[in-house]
Design a binder for these strands. Sequence first.
DNA 1: TTACGTTTGTTGCCGTTCCAACATACTTGC
DNA 2: GCAAGTATGTTGGAACGGCAACAAACGTAA
Lengths: 219, 219
Amino acid sequence: MVKLLSSVQGYELFDGMSLEEANAMVECLDGHVISRDKGAAIFVEGSHANRFGAVLSGSLVVVKDGLDGKRIIIKRIGEKELVAAAQAFSGAKIMRVRVEADAPSRILILNAERVCSPCCNGCAFHARLVRNVMRIISAKTLELNAKIEILSHRTTDDRLLAYLHTFAEKCGSNEFDIPFDRQQLADFLCVERSALSAEVSRLARAGAFACHKNHFKLT
Amino acid sequence: MVKLLSSVQGYELFDGMSLEEANAMVECLDGHVISRDKGAAIFVEGSHANRFGAVLSGSLVVVKDGLDGKRIIIKRIGEKELVAAAQAFSGAKIMRVRVEADAPSRILILNAERVCSPCCNGCAFHARLVRNVMRIISAKTLELNAKIEILSHRTTDDRLLAYLHTFAEKCGSNEFDIPFDRQQLADFLCVERSALSAEVSRLARAGAFACHKNHFKLT
DNA sequence: TTACGTTTGTTGCCGTTCCAACATACTTGC
DNA sequence: GCAAGTATGTTGGAACGGCAACAAACGTAA
């Protein structure tokens, strides 16, 4: 057996499996590893959506070309995360977005149809895998809901406050470090970086929170 | 056996099952039906998130109380759709939103933990059910992605055009009826109704499309 | 230290949205 | 038809964000 995986540590997809079990699983799902340089495509718009991927190293971006020629970055996908899972399991026939490497990356490509089919090899972990996939996709749905709640605010300060309070709620404390620098936070909130900086200052002066760099303390 | 379902027609959750099979399934999932008047809660914030629902009749809204006291409507859920599925299958322990009836409604409540557990009664449709749930949740994820793409535009006209072009792409024609009146469309795009009306007029005058009521024809 | 690049904060102008109020359709029930 | 209610379109003033250009703080390497 070819061992495509060298570790299952940190992969939600393989939660509850040993390395051997996961590698058996991978073989059962037609697994193969591809490598891509920065900018190279993993999935292109219009391609058949029956495969999904797990990022082994590097990072990807999901992009959509706007009508005006502008490229919109829909999301970033980091190591050990899944890509195109929703596409593959939704029953949609073709990809409506483009996925490309944001850095030199290695991706484990898996056949989605095999996930739900009765396992030919009688491997005992399909049920576990299905539960994991369901949990991953569901969690992603919740994340997207949270993001929509933030984006439903139109002003920069409302978006910032919604983000900070959601974050505080999630981490159970009102003092925390956010995982973004200013530019990344601006991209996430879909606002201008400079306007965001200005709002951070203004709200801090107004006493809504204290902050230094990406450390925040809500009041 | 109590037959809680009188039809499986239109329920993606029971796709591929007969009415008898679906009713057996429902019993296996601890199914029971609840009724709620408009405004009454189905799930409250902070409650244990191990159940989900299928709307038998009526319609629901998922709401979140903002810090400023404003209630944000996150989404509407219509007949035969699922509610709280992502919550229940994500592994999250508690609900972070509130779900209430938007009209007098009957909801079939199901136990999410039973979906993935090996079936006690040996009923043959767990695998099918799991596939259906995965497809439903995945499709929802794609919908949310599309909405985020729309909301990532900040101007009303960009949001409107993004929505219309996405819709045209989905229905495969550039002449179509949208399922919203102006107020609903404004809510969906997170913009002001009056500003939206103004933009519709302006873009129609500018020749981007022709429109009458909710019938649009892109040029 | 100096020089350089990167990140973050600040400012002014201009375009757009918000909000409220009003005007004009369209629909429904009588 | 008429009236009442709802949906849609229009307008003007105030507020806000986008953009560009610049200033300040920080880290790094020669």
